[in-house]
Design a protein around this nucleic acid. Structure first.
Length: 754
DNA sequence: CGCAGGCACCACGTG
DNA sequence: GGTGCCTGCG
């Protein structure tokens, strides 16, 4: 530990030891980025810099935790006082401390996307607008991007261009919705995700002395995954580090080639601007890849070379020969699931790759299902990341809504969510009255609920609800968070409802409620670090709620060991595995149909593909399917253009990609790559029949020796039919597909006779 | 006011 | 294939 620098390569050493002044580290995949970051902080502390003066911003809580653990190990001591975490969680921490300066209560709550959308829907309704003209999703993403670009409702109004574009686009009311949304969030004492950034910026802008306080504290700032920061995040970083007399000790680490969050406002302009903003910045490029074998590295370089506009670099490896990239071509998404499960078995048996070193990566979470099915069938343990997490379950969100009310009764979304849950006879009519009263009085919903004139019956019921909340608030203050939560879970009737229902479903929900209560207990009892390892300053219900709101997908992986990983490519950023399967490589899926319009979006998809393949250490498999289910319908897609962007010599079975496969002779894929075949675009449309002109024959018309067409498998010849009546099975040879011989249940088959 | 059943729309990715 | 919203009835 006396020499932290030993064991690093030359460039890494420089990136670690240059601690004064602005530094930009461009780090290719697998180039030891995390190592550099952790060693850099450890080195700083060893040089006598107080951890208290260091701010390290990462993308996930997990990354922050890992970093901290590793620093502690290197220094064999603690790093108390170091602030490391996500932008959102650290900024929320500052806002919690300074809330009163911007007119927020210390106990402000955080609206998640569902809350925001629900509020927007309410506002649209209040303004008597049609929800089809103002879909909540679009409104929210527009508002989010405005906030991220520091455009407030006021500056919006003064911007003729913006106002005009709304007129043209027939959404004149947008400005009204935006300002009302902002006002209502504030009135409810709530911040949405963007507010956690925007309000901090506002705080720094309005209160110079507070800004100074944090400037003096955070003398050294590090930002990980800088390519994924948006304009606002960078603006805050600049506020903290760029001012007259600033030491400008700022280090950003990133890789423009791995920028995959443009859709939420991230811009690689930030990387390009950094050098302009900090003219004296020293730039280090980490290009040696320690992770992957040569074919994978070569493929990555070939793919990313197709993008225009990027910082020049080329990753390289000194590793010897490794496996070539495999391709799987299948006829359906179902078969894709099966073939991949088969290959996983092969990896396990032949190469002894442990489960936790295997990952299946897809573009959209909806693709996970088939893989789940087959992994379960093969008894291979797996874990799915993303999709509905524990905290997104209905029963959990309901109880959390109650808890949110305990710390902030003004929280309008929480109030509406549970005022009539469990059912207590407070329906739309009553709530409309309360809402009207709220508008008339200009108060928050909670206050209005206490004074609104109502029918005696509604009043009694509403009072019962308010009483539970009041008692809960009281309990929280006197007895503590766990006791309050337990009280509310019972007094609200949630627990009773599930018990009474007494179905497997409801008992399962009850278990989840209990798990949540236990989670609160753990959180409160833990004295330093929560089970998730995220350092929190205080142990209160408010801190717990905030902590939950800011969890990231990668954070809940306590039992990841011994299991195969299934996740979206976005979720896989920063991770690595021995064996990677990138699935669903089809046009309209990956690249996504949303990106087909313009080159810029395709570039982002390509970077996503780049991220996907560079997760692999040794084995990489790419798969695509001719057809798959989407919205319950079969769709046919061509193979992804990205497949052709990898040079044939890096493929184990290149003919599968380059369209020359004859599929004759049993569809064997044993062809060796012929020299440096340059890729040809796949022009030939697949001979799969479109559903429109497809008229299946009835099953008893099918006879041996017939030529038939199958909706998915294409043309084939009936070799044999066995069984009788409903259990008749035809053995058919489909010469257009990979594994041509199939057995088809005639009862279900859709076959057209040629 | 509650509930059942029909429906539209959805879903690309996230703190 | 799922969810959340609307409608119409009891």
């Amino acid at each position: 530990m006396s020499d932290i620098l030993s064991g690093l390569n030359e460039i890494q050493k420089k990136a670690v030891s240059q601690i004064d002044g602005p530094v930009m580290v461009i780090a290719g995949p697998g180039s030891g980025k995390t190592r550099v970051l952790t060693f850099r902080i450890a080195y700083m502390i060893q040089q006598g810099i107080s951890p208290h003066n260091i701010l390290a911003l990462t993308f996930t809580n997990k990354a922050a935790r890992e970093m901290k653990d590793r620093i502690e190990k290197v220094l064999q001591g603690n790093v108390a006082g170091l602030w490391s975490g996500t932008f959102h969680s650290l900024f929320a921490r500052i806002l919690r401390i300074e809330a009163e300066h911007i007119g927020y209560p210390t106990s402000f709550t955080i609206y998640d996307t569902d809350d925001s959308k629900s509020l927007l829907r309410t506002i649209v309704k209040e303004l008597n607008l049609k929800k089809d003209d103002y879909p909540a999703n679009q409104l929210l993403s527009r508002i989010s991007s405005l906030k991220s670009n520091l455009i407030t409702p006021r500056t919006y109004e003064q911007d003729e261009k913006l106002m005009n574009s709304d007129k043209i686009a027939n959404r004149r009311a947008f400005h009204k919705i935006y300002s009302r949304y902002v006002a209502r969030c504030k009135q409810a004492g709530a911040m949405d995700f963007d507010d956690l950034l925007y309000r901090l910026y506002e705080l720094f802008q309005k209160k110079p002395d507070i800004l100074t306080k944090y400037r003096e504290r955070f003398k050294y700032i590090l930002v990980d995954e800088f390519q994924d920061t948006n304009f606002l995040q960078y603006a805050i970083i600049r506020k903290l580090s760029k001012y007259p007399g600033s030491p400008k000790n700022i280090c950003i680490v990133g890789d423009d080639a791995q920028s995959i969050y443009a859709f939420r406002g991230a811009t690689i302009d930030n990387i390009l601007d950094f050098e302009k903003d900090f003219k004296s910045a020293q730039v280090f490029k980490l290009e040696q890849n320690y992770r992957s074998t040569p074919h994978i590295v070569a493929a990555a370089n070939e793919v990313i070379a197709k993008n225009r506009r990027q910082i020049e670099k080329k990753i390289w490896t000194s590793q010897g020969e490794g496996e070539k990239i495999r391709i799987l071509k299948t006829v359906s998404d179902n078969e894709e699931g099966k073939r991949i499960a088969d290959q996983i078995m092969e990896y396990k048996n032949r190469y002894h790759v442990p489960n936790q070193e295997i990952a299946i990566l897809y573009r959209t979470n909806a693709q996970s299902r088939v893989f789940e099915d087959y992994l379960r069938r093969y008894n291979i343990p797996y874990r799915i990341y993303g999709g509905l997490s524990f905290y997104q379950r209905k029963e959990i969100k309901d109880l959390l809504a109650y808890l949110r009310l305990l710390i902030n009764p003004s929280d309008e979304e929480a109030f509406k969510r549970v005022v009539n849950y469990p059912k207590r006879g407070i329906g739309n009519t009553t709530m409309d009255k309360v809402m009207e009263h709220r508008t008339r009085e200009g108060t928050d919903l909670y206050t209005a609920a206490q004074t609104a004139p109502l029918s005696p019956r509604a009043r009694t019921q509403l009072n019962k609800f308010l009483k539970v909340i009041r008692a809960g608030i009281n309990k929280n203050e006197t007895a503590g968070a766990y006791e309050a939560a337990e009280y509310v879970a019972n007094a609200s009737g949630i627990i009773k409802t599930f018990k009474d229902e007494n179905t497997t479903e409801s008992l399962n929900r009850l278990e989840n409620i209990e798990a949540l209560l236990n989670g609160i207990k753990d959180f409160m009892d833990e004295d330093e670090v929560s089970e998730l390892g995220i350092e929190v300053e205080e142990r209160t219900l408010a801190a717990y709620i905030q902590h939950i709101a800011l969890l990231t997908d990668q954070d809940n992986d306590s039992e990841a060991e011994e299991k195969i990983t299934l996740m979206s490519i976005h979720g896989a950023k920063g991770l690595e595995f021995d064996a990677i399967f990138v699935v669903g490589l089809e046009e309209n899926l990956f690249p996504s149909f949303m990106s087909m319009e313009n080159e810029k979006d395709i570039d982002e998809e390509r970077r996503l593909f780049y991220v996907a393949i560079t997760r692999a250490r040794k084995y990489l498999t790419l798969s695509f399917s001719n057809s798959r289910y989407r919205y319950g319908k079969v769709v046919y897609n061509r193979p992804s253009r990205f497949l052709e962007e990898i040079n044939a010599e890096n493929y184990d079975n290149p003919n599968t990609v380059f369209g020359k496969t004859s599929f004759a002779g049993g569809g064997a894929e044993t062809t060796t790559p012929s020299a440096r075949t340059r890729f040809k675009p796949i022009k030939k449309k697949k001979t799969i029949v479109a559903p429109a002109d497809f008229t299946p024959a009835s099953s008893d018309e099918i006879k041996e020796g017939m030529e038939v067409i199958h909706q998915k498998f294409g043309k084939g010849k009936v070799l044999k039919i066995d069984g009788r009546n409903d259990s008749r099975v035809a053995t058919i040879y489909f010469n257009e597909i990979d594994t041509p011989q199939r057995r088809i249940m005639l009862k279900f088959a859709k076959l057209q006779i040629v």
